[in-house]
Amino acid sequence: MTERIHDEVERVKAAGASAPKPGRDPVNQPMINNWVEALGDTNPIYVDDAAARAAGHDGIVAPPAMIQVWTMGGLHGQRNTDDPLGLMLRLFDDAGYTSIVATNCEQTYHRYLHPGEQVSMHTTLEDVVGPKQTGLGEGWFVTTRNVWTVGDEPVAEMLFRVLKFAPRPASPDRSAVLRPIVGHDNAFFWEGTAAGELRVQHCPTCGRLRHPPGPMCPSCGADKQDWVVAAGRGTVFSYVVHHHPPVPGKQLPFVVALVELEEGVRMLGELIDVDPATVHVGMSVQLALTKIDDELTLPFWRPAS
């Protein structure tokens, strides 16, 4: 599959720029007016000839950021068959990467445009990178470059990057997760998570904090133990990104972190709401107690806000 994608990417890249696509209308004042009204932009050079001239323009100019508006497909618009972005989107739709999100848009304006100028646009495929594991799911970054011209003169360019990704199923069946055995020595911990607390075993005799807990203090031998409630903040001491095999109640891939709590003990937990690629040792995390059902509340972690 990956090979087929790479072949198609090379083919589209080699095909070069799409044919220039002219805007429906030339640059015009009514569309400029719609824009400045909707966005609330009060810059006078877009609507007032004298103000534009005072600012050094040859009369009214269009907002530079409108450049893409002039060549939008419109209400019933269709992509040209040689449009590289369209070709890429179809390729990834077919490959199961059905969702899309734009990530970057970089516009460069070579000059301001005046009403009456007719703009055309062509597109080239700049780059395709993937597959990447992202917070949204596995996907590919597709980067295209648009060039707008008036006649033969390039007047603006845009680098545009989208992520085409395979969305994860809505939510894993977390209730399938493996259950802890609860007994005399650890019930306080699981009762704590259910009560909204992260409890760490504490020795009332010598003060030692301990996790995982046990029935007898290894430091002083005391057999009566209580607990303190942790603040729920810590840092990643180590972590893994689990890809294989499937684990009950977990959505692949997922991150398990060994969290060092502010209180000094370490604890394992799934790190959620995070792009696995951004996890690192030392990362600050915060507790995210998650009720699985009436019998189990698990301590998950998420990046500290």
């Binding site: 966005l39 932009d41 009060t42 006078p44 103000a51 907002p63 950021a65 970057n104 516009q107 304006y109």
Partner: peptide, 22 residues
Amino acid sequence: TGLVERFVTDWAGPNARVKNIS
């Protein structure tokens, strides 16, 4: 992109020329 442009030109004034918005 338009809002970012407006935000900056509100401050920079009508004489400013916008060259790039990323």
